[in-house]
C-alpha cells in the first residue's frame, strides 16, 4: 500500500512516515535524497542517520535518477522517500543551473517508482500558502513541486496531510 504525505514544516510528517514504513514488516529501505553541499548539510544528514538508528532501515543514497536505486533493493520491500522536495531541488537546480524539465520528468519517475515498489511512503512539503510574490525561478519550483504532488496523490492509495502530528485523510485511509 502506497502513501503520500504532505503538510507544513516540523509537523511530524517524517516521524509518521517512518512508523508507516516500519509497520509493513517488509525489508526497510530509506531513500536518502539529500546531496550534501556544505558542512551544515553533512551535519543534518548525520543527525537524520542517527535518528533512524535502531529502526532497521537500509539507506539507499539516491539524490537523482531515482529509479536506479530500485536495482540495488528488493522492490517488494518497504521504501521511505523523504523528501520529494529535496529530490526536485537536486534535479531542478543541479550545480547552480536550472532544468525546467525536471518536474515533468520527476513526476513520471516517481509514479513509476510507486508502480514498481508499491510499499512506498513519500513525504513532500506544503509550500503553497504564503503571502509572497516570488521570482520566476522559485515560482517555477513551487509550480513544479505541486505538479509532482498532484501526480503522486492521484496514484498513491493513501493521501495524508499531517498537521501538528495529527493526520487528515484526503484519500484512502489511515495506514496506522
Amino acid at each position: 500500500m502506497s502513501t503520500f504525505i504532505s503538510g507544513g514544516c516540523k509537523n511530524g510528517k517524517s516521524y509518521y512516515a517512518q512508523r508507516i514504513a516500519k509497520a509493513s514488516g517488509a525489508p526497510l529501505y530509506y531513500v536518502a535524497t539529500m546531496i550534501p553541499r556544505d558542512e551544515e548539510d553533512e551535519a543534518r544528514i548525520h543527525r537524520h542517520r542517527r535518528e533512524r538508528e535502531g529502526w532497521g532501515f537500509v539507506t539507499l543514497e539516491c539524490g537523482s535518477n531515482i529509479l536506479a536505486c530500485l536495482e540495488r533493493a528488493d522492490a517488494r520491500g518497504s521504501f521511505l522517500l523523504d523528501s520529494v522536495t529535496a529530490l526536485l531541488s537536486n534535479e531542478m537546480f543541479p550545480a547552480g543551473s536550472t532544468d525546467p524539465t525536471a518536474p515533468e520528468r520527476l513526476a513520471g519517475e516517481l509514479c513509476e517508482f510507486v508502480r514498481r515498489a508499491p510499499r512506498t511512503v513519500l513525504v513532500s512539503d506544503s509550500i503553497y500558502s504564503d503571502a509572497m510574490l516570488y521570482d520566476d525561478g522559485t515560482e517555477a519550483y513551487r509550480r513544479g513541486l505541486a505538479r509532482i504532488d498532484r501526480a503522486l496523490a492521484a496514484v498513491c492509495d493513501n493521501v495524508l496531510e499531517v498537521v501538528s502530528s495529527q493526520v487528515i485523510v484526503h484519500k484512502g485511509g489511515l495506514p496506522l
Binding site: F4, A146, D149, R150, A153, V159, K171
Partner: peptide, 10 residues
C-alpha cells in the same frame, strides 16, 4: 466551502 489539497477536494 471546499478546500483543495494536492488536487483532492474536501
Amino acid at each position: 466551502v471546499w478546500r483543495l489539497f494536492c488536487g483532492i477536494p474536501q
